[in-house]
Design a protein around this nucleic acid. Structure first.
Lengths: 202, 202
DNA sequence: CCTACCGATCGGTAGG
DNA sequence: CCTACCGATCGGTAGG
């Protein structure tokens, strides 16, 4: 992610195409042509299409960590960090170009009914994301920012609303969609308001 | 949908495959082989792959109307009909095999970033579904089953939670996922409870 | 990293 | 509905 080697250029481009059209429909010939390389030049960096797909997933995880998880960790644990993460993702979805969140919205759905190593990696990423949300919620409950509730249930709801915001934004070209997701999450958090509930900025 | 002509068999099979792997990855050769026909035999019913895709979408709309919309219309307008529709969709998602709701969860996301006639048909279907939800909500407000609220916002949330239930059910093989969506919708409706709020069965 | 190639499959066509 | 075929593209390989 940090350098401009040819392999990084391939991964970045495959990441962009994968987020637009799905990771299964990224082809080696297409990457080669659009990057001004030969097919064998692209292929040689990975050794199989599946290895390329798995490396794109690794790459996308690193982007998500860098652009979403880590910035949010500048905020205090619990609701502030959870809310910051939601805001960052909403900004991503509402951005004009191709951004990180959309890769995962596309790929999470693309592999829902498939099987194999790529699907397994996608599912691990999704489950890890849900678990991270659950931990933030559990911490928020411990800190009495939220009243006792089922963290898995609330994490499911937050993920549903964030994904739908990005999805409806694209499918319907509706610029208000990500804010609808954000507003629904805010409303839900306020419903669960505990004695130490913090202000929700932005 | 009602007869077993060869064209109907093709559409039904393409509908099943499309819901599993996406409509773009359904191929004419694959359909021909799995149905015991020649490629030209399949192709001749449609004249182009795009025409086939558009007919599968028409077919899927008819299935959705028959299996979700019409059964729910046996219930009184407003919240009972809205809640019945949600319950039917949750049962669909939680069913063991391939069912109608999953086609749309897959295809709505598949065409988020594409363009062309198929994407346009998918978007019209999605917008029509959202509008139907909005109408039920607006009626529920008029009947004082719900307090005044933004129907477009609530429709967005319900759609997000239903889709996510089906999605997480498949990706994580989590049988509780559709019920999580259902529970979140129930909770949301009860938050908006008006003086004429009806009992939510099931 | 390249050229040149492999068998398989793609959407689509000709002709019956 | 079929066989037989078209050019293009697929993932992948050989050899350098």
């Amino acid at each position: 992610m940090e350098n401009g080697t040819s392999k990084q250029r391939i991964l970045e481009h495959a990441y962009q195409l994968g987020g637009l059209y799905g990771l299964e429909s990224v082809t080696i010939g297409q990457l080669a042509e659009q990057l001004g390389m030969s097919k064998a030049g692209v292929y040689g960096h990975f050794g199989s299409k599946q290895a390329l797909q798995l490396e794109v997933i690794r790459y996308a995880r690193a982007v998500f960590l860098r652009d979403v998880i880590q910035p949010a960790e500048a905020q205090p644990a619990g609701v502030p960090r959870l809310w910051a993460m939601c805001n960052i993702l909403v900004s991503y979805s509402a951005g004009t170009g191709l951004h990180g969140g959309d890769f995962w919205v596309t790929v999470f759905h693309e592999y829902g009914s498939r099987s194999g190593a790529v699907r397994d990696a996608v599912e691990r990423t999704f489950s890890g994301w849900l678990q991270r949300l659950e931990q933030l919620i559990a911490t928020a409950v411990e800190l009495r920012q939220l009243v006792p509730c089922d963290p898995a249930q609330l994490a499911f709801e937050i993920q549903a609303l964030l994904n739908a915001g990005g999805h409806v934004f694209r499918l319907c070209q509706d610029p208000k969609a990500p804010e609808r997701g954000q507003g629904a999450i805010r409303q839900r958090l306020e419903t669960l308001r505990g004695p130490a509930f913090p202000a929700l900025n932005e």
